[in-house]
Nucleic acid binder design. Structure first.
Length: 281
DNA sequence: GTTGAGCGTT
């Protein structure tokens, strides 16, 4: 939806798209339009929204008619505080049809061979995969990704976000893609554990559902102790006098009484009875 | 009524 009431994208030819990041979820296109229109001819303002909830996804696209005006808007509005959050304005890198964009200008859609633009693009693979995978989760609730992350153990993706959110804003003056070098460098570092605890604190995995774990552990401990310690075995009374052979496992006594009884137990019993008879006589 | 890395509607 565009700001001008049209359905769908207006004319994407010869327009320069700016990506406005970090806007508030309450910020609407009406809020952004006057702000950006001060610096040039704004053709369209579009805020992608969640399909189900209809809420803003936190970023917007502002299309300018002229590149120089778009550049000016970037220079003037990048880092500007809008509705309590400082927005980031930069040239969009992708078009609506997943086409590459050259300096904010939408590249030729199908008139020219795409092979050239594709080979020129540095990282063509991230977008589609991310979008499909993240769309379900992100549309529902973005904050939940932190918790889902631990379950799914998606290290790479999470790593970028963590390192990115780690240094949020303080040293932003001209450079809007500031963390790229740091990102690469941090990604080089091997260990994930060294970076994540800084953010999380002690142990995020322990906290959820402690009761179930503790109960299970207790049961396991009980079984282990019962199996390991023969002392309890001595305490428990045995109906069979022949079972003195196997003091270790109660289960063994229950499971195989016939075999042990027939082979060793009977022999023992007979020997004992013989001894008794001899002793009595 | 919440959230916070990222690139797009009829």
């Amino acid at each position: 939806m565009s700001h001008f009431g049209r359905s769908g994208p207006p004319d994407i030819r010869d327009t320069y798209s700016l990506l406005v990041l970090n806007i508030t979820f309450r910020t609407t296109a009406d809020d952004l339009y006057p702000l950006f229109d001060k610096y040039g001819k704004v053709v369209d303002v579009f805020i992608p929204r969640d399909r189900r909830t209809g809420e803003s996804r936190g970023f917007a696209f502002v299309r300018y008619k002229y590149a120089d005006e778009a550049q000016k808007a970037v220079d003037k509005l990048d880092g500007r505080v809008v509705d309590g959050r400082e927005i980031m304005v930069q040239f969009a890198k992708y078009g609506p049809n997943a086409e590459k964009i050259q300096k904010g200008r939408i590249a030729e859609t199908s008139s020219k061979p795409r092979g050239r633009s594709r080979s020129r693009s540095p990282r063509p693979r991230h977008r589609d995969e991310h979008r499909d995978r993240d769309y379900r989760r992100r549309s529902r609730s973005r904050s939940r990704e932190r918790y889902d992350r631990d379950k799914y153990r998606e290290r790479d993706r999470d790593y970028r976000r963590r390192s990115r959110s780690h240094s949020v804003s303080p040293d932003r003056h001209k450079d809007r893609r500031r963390g790229r070098d740091d990102k690469e460098r941090r990604t080089r570092s091997r260990s994930v554990d060294s970076a994540s605890p800084v953010r999380h604190g002690s142990s995020p995995r322990r906290s959820p559902s402690p009761q179930r774990r503790s109960s299970r552990d207790e049961q396991n401990d009980e079984q282990n102790s019962r199996e390991q310690s023969p002392a309890q075995k001595d305490v428990s009374p045995r109906d069979r006098p022949v079972d003195s052979r196997s003091p270790s496992h109660k289960s063994d006594a229950d499971e195989e009484p016939l075999i042990t009884g027939s082979s060793g137990g009977l022999a023992m019993t007979s020997v004992l009875s013989c001894l008794d008879k001899v002793a009595k006589s």
